[in-house]
Amino acid sequence: MRAYEINEFGIENLSITERKMPVPQANEVVVKFHAASLNFRDLMMVKGVYDPEVRRPLVPFSDGAGEVVEIGSEVTRWKVGDRVMPAFMQDWIDGAIDYRKAKTALGGDLDGCLREYGAFREAGLVPIPGHLTYEEAATLPCAGVTAWNALRVSGKLAKGDKVLLLGTGGVSIFALQFAKNVGAETIITSSSDDKLEMAGTLGATHTINYKTNPDWDEEVLELTGKRGVDHIVEVGGAGTLQKSINCVRMGGHIAVIGVLAGKGGFDPISILMKAVRLQGIFVGSRVMFEDMAEMIRNEYIKPVVTKVFEFDDAREALSMMESGDHFGKIVVKVGG
């Protein structure tokens, strides 16, 4: 079977190789992948920024979707033909995260999904909602679950809450869809008026161009009557965190997810004085994934895919991720 491998860091060094077909152990199934999707973590992994000491060769990309083509002798959860998605962390089934569970992430500690076939423990898979294509389903395991954990689990999002979303990448767009579904009021930022217009068609209540309005935190306060928002999906990291703290309400919730905005600093006194709850989000458990998938199925939510690349063009997909030109998710088709 064909698989991409990281042997040397750099997009240009990502290579296709031939690997042996996986053989399932007693509690495993073999999944034939039809699609894999990109996250910023995957780009950092390929470039050697996320973990310079990661084991190599490594199959990249944590997120994928496919069908079960073979099952082990003790498998009871799945049958041949089932459409499935591997969970981001294979051993985080439920409960609190711990170091052991965190060391079972696909596309990092374990081989990822940018390959034609993979063997997975039966407990590490989730069924695909029936109305989704493989390309759409492949976007859910990391970005979707991260947004779900940030707002619905950590944030306990409620109707009428005010939510600030930074940027228009995969996590932020999923968060926009989930917030709208609950009946929350949303504010979303971008440097592109075209992307803000697209966010508006998805139901964003307010949009802010942070390039033309660098003091976007002040505009958020204006839009909320100086009160501030209840929740912030903070994907910028150190480069945006202080502005996020400025415009969250007293006692509000900031879900810290990404590092897209680079370096910066913040005053911890402002966290104390506003009693802000700062919560790191590291994707989520299989149970969170299942709960999210059930809601997506019931509400007929469709992930936003900006472009689908062929398997041989995975490097071009990574270059698009690096450019920041995408809106929502980027997907790579796998197999025929």
Rank of each mutant, 00 (worst) to 15 (best):
I257L: 09
H231N: 12
Y117H: 12
E299Y: 09
E122G: 04
D91I: 03
G183H: 11
P141M: 02
A143D: 07
A261F: 04
G258L: 03
L223V: 06
A143Y: 09
A293G: 12
P24V: 12
K243Q: 15
G167E: 06
V49T: 06
L14R: 07
R121M: 00
S190F: 07
D98S: 08
D291A: 13
L14M: 04
D312F: 06
G280C: 01
T212H: 07
K307A: 14
S172D: 05
D215Y: 02
S73Y: 04
F178K: 09
E185Q: 14
E70I: 03
R115K: 07
K159Q: 12
I232V: 14
K103T: 05
R249D: 05
E53S: 13
G264C: 13
V171F: 00
L221G: 09
D109W: 03
L176Q: 10
E135F: 04
G336K: 09
K226T: 13
G335M: 07
L164D: 05
D217L: 05
M250G: 14
L202R: 06
V308S: 09
G118P: 12
N7F: 00
I232P: 04
P141N: 04
D325S: 14
I232E: 02
V31C: 12
G124W: 01
T306W: 09
A123W: 00
L43E: 01
R152M: 15
D82R: 06
N27E: 10
G264I: 12
A255K: 04
G328F: 03
A143R: 04
G124P: 11
V256Q: 01
F311L: 14
S73V: 14
H131M: 02
I6K: 00
I6A: 02
D51R: 03
E310S: 15
E219L: 09
I173E: 10
W148S: 13
E322K: 13
H326I: 02
S191G: 08
W216P: 12
V229I: 10
T104F: 07
V75T: 13
G112V: 09
K243G: 15
E299I: 00
Q279G: 08
G336Q: 13
A150D: 10
L110N: 02
L140G: 14
R249M: 08
F327M: 06
T76F: 01
L176M: 09
M320L: 15
V75L: 07
M89K: 00
G280N: 01
K156Y: 06
G251N: 08
T17G: 07
P24T: 11
N213Q: 10
R227F: 03
R277S: 14
F282D: 08
N298K: 14
L140I: 15
L241G: 13
A255F: 05
R83Q: 06
I254F: 06
K180G: 09
W92N: 08
G264Y: 07
I330G: 13
